[in-house]
Structures are given as C-alpha cells and as structure tokens.
Simulated assay, not measured.
Amino acid sequence: MSNFIPYGRQNINQADIDAVVEVLESAFLTQGPAIERFEEVVAKYSGAKFAVAVTSATAALHISCQALGLGKGDRLWTSPNTFVASANCGLYCGAEVDFVDIDPTTYNLCTTQLKEKLEKASANGQLPKVIVPVHFAGQSCQMEAISALSQSYGIKIIEDASHSIGSSYQSKPVGSCTYSDLTVFSFHPVKIITSGEGGMVLTNDAGLYQKLIRLRTHGITRDVTLMHGEPDGPWSYQQLELGYNYRMTDIQAALGASQMDRLEKFIDRRRFLAHRYNQLLSHLPIQLPLQHKDCESSWHLYVIRLRLPELSKTHRQIFEELRQANIGVNLHYIPVHTQPYYTDLGFQHGDFPETEKYYSEAISIPLHYGLTLEQQDYIVDTLKAIVR
C-alpha cells in the first residue's frame, strides 16, 4: 500500500462538475440564484426556517455572534476541544472567552461541568451571553440539557455543527435549531459535503435571519421598509450596521447544492465504515468512539484513544509510525486554551484536565466516503502491528 491515505477528503462527481459549469456559463457568478437554492435545500433538509450561506463556518460563527449582540463586556463560553474558530468568534466581537471541559466519553461539552460553572458565574455576576456547544466529530452535544440550563440564565446558544450536517439528535436533524438560536455548518473539503470553502447559518428567528443577511454584505439593505428616510431612488441602498463581505459565490453554492443530493449516501457510507472500524479494532488496547443513545452521528471523524499504560510506545511514536506507513492520521484538536494566543490571555495548561487528557491519547484515523475496504483493512492491520 504505497499511496497516501488522507484522514478526510471530498468526493466530486460529474453532476457536481456540471452544476459548477452551468453557473460558469450563466449570468451570475456571485449574488445570483444558486445561493438561494443552496440555502433552501439545506434549510429544508435540516428542518430550519431560514439559512444564510457565507464564505466559511468561521464567518458564520462571527456573524452569528454579532447578530445576537455579543460585544465588549460580554462573555462567550465554548469547548476547549475544538478548532480555534469556535472561540475566536467571540474575540472578534470584543467579548471575553472561556471554556467548559468535555465529557470523557463523548468528547463534547460536559453538561455537569456547565451546570457547576454557570452556578459559580451567576453568583459572581459573570454569566456568559452566548454558549457555543461544538458537536465534535459529528455527534451532537446534549442539547436539551444545555438549552434548559441556558434558558434558566437567559443565555443564547449557537450550535457549532461544523462536523454535523446529516447528524440527528433525539431523532431530529442537527440544524433544526430546536434547542438553539442559531446553528452553523461547515462545507470545507474534509467535511461531509463541500462547497470548496463555505459555511451556513440556520435559524428559526426571522429577525436574526434579516440581520444575518445584512451582516454578510457590509451591513447593507435594499429593503425600503428598513431605510432611514425616503430612498433617493430605485438604486438606493443603506448601510445600517457594520457588516462584512462574507458572501458565498454562486460557483460554491452550486457545488454545495449538488453535493446535498448525495448527503444521505455519504452519511450511510461513513456509518458503515465506522461500524466496521468498531468491529475490527475492538480487541486492541484503544478506546473506540462512544455514541450517546440520543445521537446518531454523521461520523465526520473517527477518533481512537490509546490506552497508553497498556502500550510500550508513546502517543507520538504511534502517530509517527502511522504517518510513515502513508496513513494520514491527524489529531483533533490541540486544546484551544493551550494555544500561545490564549495562554497570553491568561489560560494555562491544567485548566481543563479532561480535554488535556483526551489530547494526550487521541488520534483521528482516516474516514471518508472514498475510503475503500482495502484501505481500511490496511489501516487496521498497520495499527494492530504498531500497537502490539
């Protein structure tokens, strides 16, 4: 097995290419009808009323925070086991950021830790304005409990579902916003579906939707009913707030909408491969990813944890040997609070021990639609040889 096996990879077919070419040959490369089509198909699939396509999930998180009025003097809490964007979005708005440690079995934000931290924050007058639960690896957080806690303290919720289009929680699609104000998806090439780069915000709140639409386009409106005073003419637009150029192109939207046609196929394959990993790796000195009974994961990632006391090699040695065998393992994630930028803000190693313990043992092994059974067998056999 000489070819490198990536941990994640997009799958592009002729229908995707045709959809992009159709846009390239059309009158609109951006700000055209393909955007609305993509938004409609994702909203319908997820069960949300509104969707707003943007340049990335990072942009989606940013304008979600801004739409909720997060600003200087406010606080945002999220998981330390995530990509830095889940926390950075709060800093972009001038807010303070803090973290809630993870559950040791799901690797998602721990509801017990959240409850205890909220009680202390309430007593100290330091409650967050926004909580960002991250659906790690495609498995939803325990949103009913998080929502109940947040409502009791008047806190807004943004679900970071960058990993989780196609997942379900309590038999409802992630993205329905049943237990949140907003949900964010990512369409980066390693995710379940791709638009190249891209993201989307979903909500059931019409007011938030209108604000998101403005924020992605410089804070500008062409809606006469929202303008200050009489418009100068049919060409008029007004900037009502400070927004950004976070517009997705029609080229990206066409690819994303075409990919949605195969979303269920992508998910089914990932679930099959994850189940097969569970069977093939069950007798090794590793902890396999556990699924909560309320969740059905989209399996963006398949993460194993090494039982290091039972092994003669270090975490790094095993990781490097897998890479040397052309297996593109990765590690999701370096705890955000240990990044130099965040330690400069006052966070320290040891602040969130469950996340740090997870990081010291975790390896993401390849899982994507195009992974063949031959490749999966090679990964399993190589891992067995390395850890034994």
Rank of each mutant, 00 (worst) to 15 (best):
E116K: 12
P133K: 05
G125E: 10
Q151W: 03
D205P: 03
G138I: 00
S152G: 03
V224H: 01
V130Q: 12
S167R: 00
T217P: 04
R214Y: 11
K117Y: 09
K211D: 00
E144V: 00
S176G: 07
G196N: 11
T194P: 15
C110Y: 00
F187R: 08
I146Y: 05
V132Y: 03
G125Y: 06
A161F: 06
S176Y: 06
L208H: 14
G207I: 10
T112D: 12
G199W: 12
A137H: 14
D160I: 02
K172L: 06
K129V: 07
G229E: 02
G198C: 10
E197T: 06
S140W: 01
E119F: 13
T178L: 05
T111F: 01
L182F: 13
Q170L: 10
F187C: 13
K191N: 07
L226C: 14
K120P: 08
I157W: 00
T194A: 14
N108Q: 11
G229F: 03
D160A: 09
R216F: 08
Q151N: 09
Y179V: 03
P231C: 06
I158S: 04
V224G: 01
S164H: 07
P128G: 12
T217V: 05
S171A: 14
R214K: 14
S164F: 01
H218D: 11
S150E: 08
H188R: 08
E230G: 02
F136Q: 01
S171C: 11
I155T: 09
S195W: 10
A123D: 12
V132N: 02
S186L: 12
I213Q: 13
A145Q: 14
I155F: 07
G125R: 10
K211Q: 01
S150Q: 08
E197P: 11
N124P: 03
L202E: 13
I131L: 11
H163A: 10
Q126W: 03
Q210N: 15
A121P: 09
T217Q: 08
Q170S: 03
Y169R: 04
A137T: 14
V130N: 04
K129I: 04
A123Y: 09
N124W: 09
E197A: 15
T225A: 14
F187I: 12
T194K: 11
M143A: 12
K156L: 06
P133E: 05
K172A: 05
H135M: 04
V134E: 01
L215R: 07
N204R: 14
I165R: 00
P189S: 06
S122Q: 13
Q139A: 09
V134L: 06
T111Q: 02
Y169I: 03
I158K: 03
I192C: 05
T221F: 06
L212P: 00
K191W: 04
K156Y: 08
Q210Y: 12
Q210G: 14
S167Q: 00
K172V: 10
S147F: 06
A145M: 15
Y179F: 13
V132G: 04
G175E: 07
